[in-house]
């Protein structure tokens, strides 16, 4: 954890109260976001995101699998986050496990929607190849390379960028397979299908320090938080998931305020991220 003196703590809290934070930002301003796509050639899609000193990598791998019996018309997506011990010595060994699990659950909640598949950022029915028999299994892996606060927002953005960078090979299904037989498939090597990522939400974490909430907190600021609420919002302005961190209680009206602030902030963030992803893709292609 971050060790701060009493003076430093007061400085951070006072700055936030006056809407001027230590690095000169306002309460609702993000750090500049740098996006780089296609960083892992082994994966079907990948991206690296840097926000200040926070750096994360997300990779998407697709494998052919079998849909679950309960949902034969849907593919499967799993999200795992790994907190590397290079990011912080405290993550060494099993130290990062709790944080990894917390981040994974929060991302699954935000991106995969409810049990019925409603509100999912990724359209699971687009992953189906042959209904009930073959589907794509997407494995989304996130890696925290360097940690300076606001990991969840960065990971959410990295996954969004990695998904828009993802190309799924076109699959030819051999005709003639009937009944219970597993149809033969041919995976194309040079034809790739792009994903529709317009529905993937962004995550906005509002960290409450003192009486005010801030976005994109650094780890110094996070050490002063009483609680944080991560809200994922899609392009339509609908809420796709909320996770609360920190166990200090919040008044319900504050939560509702945070939701409306998050909706406002998310609009700018989505636009900013989309343009960054587009320019990163352009650079990647050239």
């Amino acid at each position: 954890m971050v060790g701060l003196s009493l003076g430093e703590r007061h400085f951070i809290q006072g700055g936030i109260a006056q809407d001027l934070r230590c690095d000169g930002r306002k309460r609702l301003t993000y750090r500049p976001i740098y996006v780089e796509t296609g960083v892992i050639p082994q994966a079907h899609g990948s991206a690296r995101i840097r926000m200040g000193a926070t750096e994360v990598i997300a990779s998407v791998k697709a494998e052919l699998g079998k849909p679950s019996l309960l949902q034969p018309d849907k593919g499967k997506v799993s999200i795992y986050i790994d907190c590397s011990s290079t990011a912080e010595p405290a993550f060494e060994g099993r130290g990062g496990d709790d944080l990894s699990a917390e981040l994974s659950v929060a991302l699954q909640r935000s991106l995969l929607g409810a049990k019925s598949g409603a509100g999912a950022g990724i359209d699971l029915s687009s992953l189906i190849v042959v209904e009930g028999k073959i589907c794509w299994d997407l494995y989304i892996d996130g890696l925290v390379v360097s940690s300076d606060g606001n990991l969840l927002d960065a990971l959410g953005a990295a996954i969004k960028a990695a998904l828009s960078n993802t190309g799924i090979p076109r699959v030819q299904v051999a005709a003639g397979a009937s009944g219970d037989e597993k149809p033969e498939v041919e995976i194309s090597d040079d034809e790739f299908l792009q994903f529709d990522t317009s529905g993937v939400p962004v995550i906005v974490t509002l960290t409450k320090v003192g009486r005010h909430s801030i976005v994109d907190a650094t780890s110094e600021e996070e050490s002063q938080m009483s609680s944080a609420v991560s809200i994922s919002v899609n392009r339509q302005g609908h809420i796709c998931g909320i996770t609360k961190r920190g166990s200090v209680g919040l008044d319900p009206s504050i939560v509702l305020d945070m939701i409306s602030v998050a909706k406002h902030v998310s609009e700018q963030l989505i636009n900013k991220l989309d343009s960054e992803i587009a320019s990163a893709e352009a650079e990647d292609d050239s």
Binding site: G241, I242, K244, S247, V255
Partner: peptide
């Protein structure tokens, strides 16, 4: 509120 989780689109 001590804890709050929301899933799905709202």
């Amino acid at each position: 509120i001590t804890q709050l989780t929301v899933t799905g689109e709202w």
